[in-house]
Every structure is written in structure tokens, then in C-alpha cells.
Write a protein that binds this DNA or RNA. Structure first.
Length: 570
RNA sequence: UGGGGCGUAGACGAAUGGUAAAGUCACCGGUCUUUGGAACCGGAGUUUGUAGGUUCGACUCCUACCGCCCCAGCCA
């Protein structure tokens, strides 16, 4: 390895691909696919798979197909097809026109099924689903109520003649039998220790309208019968899926061998789990449908759409996927890893602005009434090319309520009676008077400023221990700010208190709406999706709910707060 | 129970028989700072699920055990 090359450890899948390419397998081609079922929205777990599949192809000058696995018309919709493509593009990947549907292969699959029947490797079975389960030896319990797995027994229809099978299968296609009356099954081994191999179903009768095939089909192929053959048709070299499909691999291989067609190889990696959230379509759907969140793009959701609306960047998500790596172990990644990647990217790219979330009025008593001025502010200290902007300053300002304490503890550096601090890009100010209402609440701070410190530096070299953000009261835009927090109160939402539902772990403060925020005026004109840092507070993203009068901002992620840590320690 | 997997610091994850185990997040301390941010420097922590075995030498090979996850849909 060259000296200036940094060592990048390969995960086990990349090791395999590397070895295959080097040995000339598949003529050195790398061709992957991402095969979502169009029955829901993509989430960050999918992002991991997308990054792996598309990333692998990029690394080896290969190709990646987008293939919709649309074999179950009861669940799939066009709406999801559009959204999934949109999300993959947003994440930063493209399939260059190689968009396919498993349903495009239904005719070929049907022919291959006929071929297997002729080879005596498939048969039409009349067992009901309960009977099939029983014959398979599934769901059997011993006296102690523990699950056992006795060998299955052959279906009484297993030995039908080829002719009869052909006839029945054709009539299944023609709609002569009611839904669920018969199935086509692979004839493998009813005593196989792997239940998947006990004569799995290849076709089921379903009189369902398919969103792409219309009413052409009355029987639909199962996942197992479809997936490997689709991979074969497309010339996929490495078919990557999550570990739950590992036990299906013998069947994947069996079909391909029985058909004697090109045989791609399946590899499995561990699916992603993240703390403080759920990552399964079933649970996400429940949250949306039961109204616990506002929709699939709710910023609290780990869906790609939700994270996009929240202000996460595709770069950050991709970097996160790179860092967590690929392995087969099933762990749970701390969400702080994701947040770190988001902060890291936004720190480099997000312009800084000033916004006061919990305003308290400050009157600069020695600043002329009715006067105002524009001050230069740096847009992003991390990016010299980001330039500067003008921020209005006047006699009446707002600062953050948290930035003042009447009786401050030793480690509190911010404003307090008699203390001087800096207003960012503006002046040093000193607090002289605290005005309270009849309830004893602070309503106003009366301060003086030092005109010599314009811009934030004292000519005499004196220092202050704190720099505060602020906005000019008469110029400020009033805004709604949505402060998001974790969706659940527990790292593992499924760790449920005795006798309660997992939704009992929902965080009641996962979003806190603030309508008192005051922003720099320029923020009114920003486009939805605009990402910025509210100095000293966090990263925020303008929400599409914004109106010309009321901008709405979502908190993407807070800045790290070491003062909070000091406080928490007491 | 059968079958398939997995077990390296709080979390993720390298190490493919050879200097008593990389990196990242989190954590702790410090420097710097017109963001108590960022950056930079430093620190702590595992002895590699357990017990045996092979070997000059094992996270890596073997045996047994333990724990966790997945399947038992005509879902994918």
C-alpha cells in the first residue's frame, strides 16, 4: 500500500466482491440491485442497503438496478414507486435507466414453473393453508408448550401426474378456482430440517388488481419463486439482502439449479437498528396510521422523507452508513453516531444566522432612540467563501432568556447584573438594571453599550467571557420553531413496561412548538428546505409549512452544549 | 425442539496464527475561540461469551457449553 493511502478496512461483502473480481468470476463484472417492495416508504435501514449496493457498483465500475419487488398486489401501490425513486435520488444515487419490476417477469416465471412441473419438481396442491401448515410440521408444541419441529408429511396431492399438474396449473391461471383453493408448490423435501425447504409455495390464487399488470393475473408468484429468477434474468452478480433471508438461500439456490439458468449468489448482512426509534415498516406504518406522527415525512421519523424534512443531508446519511460498516451481527447503533455525521456536515456547509428562541427584551439606554445601523456578520467561519451579511442593530434587542442570570453561579459566564458581555458582531454591553413585573418575572434588561467596541472587539484589549446571540426587536421576524427530540424515551422502544404497549414509550416531548421565536429578518425570504445554524443553538431547516408572514423552522439537531453538561452535574 | 445466524471496551467495528487488539461515536481532562460550537491535544476503558484443547505462539484452528437474534405466511 502506498504511504499516502489511508488504510480502509473492507467489510466481508467487499472482501468477497474483491476476490470475485480478482479471480475473474462473472468476467469481473459487478452488478447489484436494490429491490424494495413498493408498499411503504424508505427509511435509514434502507439507506444502508442502498449505500452498499450502489456503493459497491461504483467502486468496481459496475451497475446497480432498481427493481420493484411487486409480487403481492394486496399491498403495493404506485404512490410508493414514485416516492422510493425520489428518495433514492435524493440520497444521491441513480440507476441510469435500469428500472425494473419483478412483475415484468411474470410471463417468464410462468413458463419456468411449467418447466419445473414437467421435470416433476413442482405440483399443484389442494391443501388449505391450515392443512399445509400442519403437514409441514410447523406450529407444533409439546406437552410443556414448547415449540418442536417434527418432520413434515407429504401432501396427498404430491404425486399427481405431470399431465394433471399441467392441466390444473393452467386452469389456476385461467381462473377456474377460487382464491386460495390451490397452490403450486416446489417438490423438495417435506422432512427437510429447514422449514423453508418443505415444498414451498410458488404460486397462490389471488383475484387482485395489480397496479402494473392490471387484471391479467389471477395467480401471483411468491417472493422465493420470484427473487432469484429476477436476479438471474438481470444478470445480477451479487444479490445482497439482510440476514433474515439467510435461511432462504438454499431455496434461492435450489430454484436456479433446477432451472439450470445463470446463478447469481446471495449474500446477507445484518440489518440496521438505531436507538430511540423504530425501523420496521410495520411499526412505522402504525405510528403514521394511528396519528402518533403527522405523516411519513414527519421530521421525527427515521424515514428518508422525514429526515429530509428535518434537515438531515444526504451526505451525512451516506457518511453515517459508511461509518457503521457492514457485518452480520445484530446490534443497535447509538443514534449519536448519526447526529454526529449531521453536525459534521452542517458545520461545514450551513450558513450561520441569529435567532432568539425564548426572548427577553434588552434596552440599550445609551443608544439613541429611533436609530439603527447595519453590522457585518460572517456567514460561516468554517467556510471563507460563504461571505458576510448585514445584520440590523438598534436600541431595543432580544437575547435568550437563558443567557441572563440575576444571581449567577461561578461557572456561568453570560450576562448578569454589572457584568459585561459581547453581542456577536455588535458591541460589548453591560447590564445595569433588571425590570420585573408584578409576578417577579424578569421582563426587561436595561444595559449600556460601549460604542468603541463596534464589531465586537475592544480597542483597549479588554476581554469578556461570553458572546451572546441577539436580534434587533423592531427588525426581527416572528417565527414558529419546532424543537424535535427523540421519538421514544427509551433506547429500545420495544423494552416495554409491564403490561403496556410499546407506544407507551413514545416521548410526549418529541416535538415542542415555539411560537415566540424571533429571527434575523432575512430568514423570512429563505426557501423551504433552507438549512442554517442558529448560532449557539443548533441547526435548523425551513419547513414547507412556512407562510410569508410566519416562517416555520425545524430543529435538525442541537449544537453540543457543554454548559448544559456543567448544569447537569450540578 | 429443529434449522439458520451472531457473540471483540457503553455503542458500532477492524484484526484472515506472530509486536498483550485499529478506527469512529459516546465519556473524561486540557489548549484555543467574537458560537460554552468547531478545531486541536491528551486520557480512561475491553484481555476478545465461558471452559478446555492444538501450537513456540490463537480474537483467529478444534471440542463442549452459555447467551442473544431469525424462521416455522398461500408477506417480502
Amino acid at each position: 500500500m502506498a504511504e499516502n493511502e489511508t488504510y480502509q478496512a473492507l467489510d466481508f461483502i467487499r472482501e468477497i466482491v474483491k476476490a470475485d473480481v480478482e479471480s475473474g468470476k462473472n468476467d469481473g463484472r459487478v452488478h447489484t440491485r436494490f429491490p424494495p417492495e413498493p408498499n411503504g416508504y424508505l427509511h435509514i435501514g434502507h439507506a444502508k442497503a442502498i449505500c452498499l449496493n450502489f456503493g459497491l457498483a461504483e467502486e468496481y465500475n459496475g451497475l446497480t438496478n432498481l427493481r420493484f419487488d411487486d409480487t403481492n398486489p394486496t399491498k403495493e401501490k404506485d404512490e410508493y414507486v414514485e416516492a422510493i425513486q425520489d428518495d433514492i435520488h435524493w440520497l444521491g444515487f441513480d440507476w441510469a435507466g435500469r428500472l425494473y419490476y419483478a412483475s415484468d417477469y411474470f410471463d417468464q416465471l410462468y413458463e419456468w414453473a411449467v418447466e419445473l412441473i414437467k421435470k416433476g419438481k413442482a405440483y399443484v396442491c389442494d391443501l388449505t393453508d391450515e392443512e399445509m401448515s400442519e403437514y409441514r410440521g410447523a406450529n407444533v408444541f409439546n406437552e410443556e408448550g414448547k415449540r418442536i419441529t417434527p418432520p413434515g408429511k407429504n401432501s396427498p396431492y404430491r404425486d399427481r401426474s405431470v399431465e394433471e399438474n399441467l392441466d390444473l396449473f393452467e386452469r389456476m391461471k385461467n381462473g377456474e378456482f377460487p382464491d386460495g383453493a390451490r397452490t403450486l408448490r416446489a417438490r423438495i423435501d417435506m422432512a427437510h430440517p429447514n422449514l423453508i425447504m418443505r415444498d414451498p409455495v410458488m404460486y397462490r390464487i389471488m383475484r387482485k388488481h395489480h397496479f402494473r399488470q392490471g387484471d391479467k393475473w389471477l395467480l401471483y408468484p411468491t417472493y422465493d419463486w420470484t427473487h432469484g429468477q429476477s436476479d438471474s434474468i438481470e444478470g445480477i452478480t451479487h444479490s445482497i439482502c439482510d440476514v433474515s433471508f439467510e435461511i432462504h438461500r438454499p431455496l434461492y439456490d435450489w430454484f436456479l439449479e433446477a432451472l439450470e439458468i445463470y446463478h447469481p449468489r446471495q449474500y446477507e448482512f445484518g440489518r440496521l437498528n438505531l436507538t430511540y426509534t423504530v425501523l420496521s415498516k410495520r411499526y412505522l406504518r402504525q405510528l403514521v396510521e394511528d396519528g402518533h406522527v403527522a405523516g411519513w415525512d414527519d421530521p421525527r421519523l427515521p424515514t428518508l422523507r422525514g429526515m429530509r424534512r428535518r434537515g438531515y443531508t444526504p451526505e451525512a446519511i451516506r457518511e453515517f452508513c459508511r461509518r457503521i460498516g457492514i457485518s452480520k451481527s445484530d446490534g443497535i447503533v447509538e443514534i449519536q453516531n448519526l447526529e454526529h455525521c449531521v453536525r459534521e456536515h452542517l458545520n461545514k456547509t450551513a450558513p450561520r444566522v441569529m435567532a432568539v428562541l425564548d426572548p427577553i427584551k434588552v434596552v440599550i439606554t445609551n443608544y439613541p432612540e429611533g436609530q439603527s445601523e447595519e453590522l457585518d456578520a460572517i456567514n460561516n467561519p468554517e467556510d471563507p467563501n460563504a461571505g458576510t451579511r448585514q445584520v440590523p442593530f438598534s436600541r431595543e434587542l432580544y437575547i435568550e432568556r437563558d443567557d441572563f442570570m440575576e444571581d449567577p453561579p461561578k461557572k456561568f459566564f453570560r450576562l448578569a447584573p454589572g457584568r459585561e458581555v459581547r453581542l456577536r458582531y455588535a458591541y460589548f454591553i453591560t447590564c445595569h438594571e433588571v425590570v420585573k413585573n408584578e409576578n417577579g418575572e424578569i421582563v426587561e434588561l436595561r444595559c449600556t453599550y460601549d460604542p468603541a467596541t463596534r464589531g465586537g472587539d475592544a480597542p483597549d484589549g479588554r476581554k469578556v467571557k461570553a458572546t451572546l446571540h441577539w436580534v434587533s426587536a423592531p427588525h426581527a421576524a416572528r417565527a414558529e420553531v419546532r424543537l424535535y427530540d427523540y421519538l421514544f424515551t427509551r433506547e429500545d422502544p420495544m423494552n416495554v413496561p409491564e403490561g403496556e404497549d410499546w407506544k407507551a414509550n413514545l416521548n410526549p416531548r418529541s416535538v415542542v412548538i415555539n411560537r415566540e421565536a424571533r429571527l434575523e429578518p432575512m430568514l423570512k425570504d429563505a426557501e423551504p428546505g433552507f438549512r442554517c445554524q442558529f448560532e449557539r443553538l443548533g441547526y435548523f431547516c425551513k419547513d414547507p409549512d412556512s407562510t410569508p408572514d410566519t416562517p416555520v423552522f425545524n430543529r435538525t439537531v442541537a449544537l453540543k452544549d457543554s454548559w448544559k453538561k456543567v448544569q447537569d452535574k450540578g
